[in-house]
């Protein structure tokens, strides 16, 4: 007992780690790697046992499962991917059982996973058109907001008088949720296209404008002095000093801005569009085609995630000085 009391800290840690091996961490680990694959097999078994929905082609759902299983096998060392897939498979299992293995389930309100994924195979043309149309609106609205926000933000931030007058105004206008403009914009502006671009624009512009104006006005005086002593022209100051100075902050707010813009876009599309992702969801909701509604919701999730991934990659490429 006395030796135990006299043990110093490293020894205690050693004992603890040994204790860990007694409970056999490696065993837990190998089971842990096993879990998603077991769930995958269970899921396959569920799909191929007869149920309420056997008429739907299962190809698309199986393809999705095959791709995720392949990714899992390909990146065998990623514990987080393994956990993510386990959770995903579990959700699929619940979904599959809940829609096909329960008696008297309403297959219109609760479509089976196979049915939802089949939409991606059968409607891919419409889906691509929807993505194209939404991305066009998002692209135009987003890039115009980005360009104007940065330009005006830098000018506002570097002129004290503009900063003191415009920023307070911007802070009043910016918290108004841009979705609120949508009905009015759709009514007033000549085409739906212009209206939704306007709404997307205003959902991002203020954020970027305020962000840039604030960071320019808080720029380190020493950095400015250094630039001044190099006799930079106004354009060089803009392009080589102020713009790169703001860039990391802008990149940080972009994912949030994209999410906001997408929310506004899909909401706008549900009000007045004739194409696009939001339109896709609303159109089929009108026909109570909830299979396509759910597929559309999935699709929007996938598109937003792809956009965010793209932005993160862009940030990694563009901002290399941190």
């Amino acid at each position: 007992m006395t030796t135990a009391v006299l043990q110093d800290v490293p020894d205690v840690q050693e004992v603890q780690s040994k204790k860990g091996t007694v409970f056999s961490w490696p065993a837990v680990r190998s089971i842990q790697w096993f879990i998603p694959h077991v769930l995958f097999v269970v899921l396959l078994w569920l799909i191929f046992t007869p149920g309420a929905d056997d008429s739907t082609p299962k190809g698309a759902f199986l393809a999705v499962l095959a791709i995720s299983e392949a990714a899992l096998l390909f990146r065998r060392n990623s514990r987080s991917l393994s956990d993510i897939m386990a959770i995903l498979y579990l959700l699929f299992i619940v979904w599959e059982i809940g829609t096909t293995k329960v008696e008297d389930v309403n297959l219109i309100l609760y479509p089976s996973p196979a049915k939802v994924f089949a939409i991606f195979a059968s409607d891919w043309q419409k889906i691509l058109d929807g993505i194209r149309s939404s991305m066009y609106l998002l692209g135009v609205g987003f890039s115009s907001a980005l360009i104007l926000g940065v330009l005006l933000g830098i000018v506002t931030g570097s002129v004290a008088r503009l900063r003191d007058s415009l920023l307070p105004l911007a802070k009043v206008i910016s918290p108004i949720p841009p979705i609120i403009y949508t009905p009015y914009a759709v009514a007033v502006l000549p085409t739906f296209e212009i209206a939704s671009i306007f709404v997307i624009f205003s959902s991002i512009f203020w954020q970027i404008y305020i962000q840039v104006a604030l960071s320019v006005s808080n720029i380190d005086q020493k950095l400015l002095d250094s630039a001044k002593t190099m006799n930079l022209s106004a354009t060089a100051m803009f392009i080589h000093v102020l713009w790169p100075y703001c860039l990391p902050n802008i990149m940080k707010t972009l994912p949030l801005s994209v999410a906001n813009a997408f929310m506004v876009l899909t909401a706008a599309e549900m009000i007045g569009a004739t194409s696009g992702l939001g339109y896709f969801v609303r159109y089929y909701a009108d026909f109570a085609d909830y299979t396509r509604v759910i597929a559309g919701i999935f699709l929007i999730g996938i598109v937003v995630s792809a956009l965010n991934y793209g932005i993160a990659e862009l940030e990694r490429k563009v901002v290399r000085w941190h």
């Binding site: 020493k222 250094s226 790169p244």
Partner: peptide, 28 residues
């Protein structure tokens, strides 16, 4: 005709060592 070196922040963080100098040369 004057060049200045400060205690801090003389360099632009977003340019490499070479880019910082080359940028200075191109300004002068």
């Amino acid at each position: 005709n004057r060049g200045v070196v400060f205690q801090h922040y003389s360099l632009f963080p977003w340019m490499t060592a070479e880019q910082n100098i080359a940028f200075g040369i191109r300004q002068a």
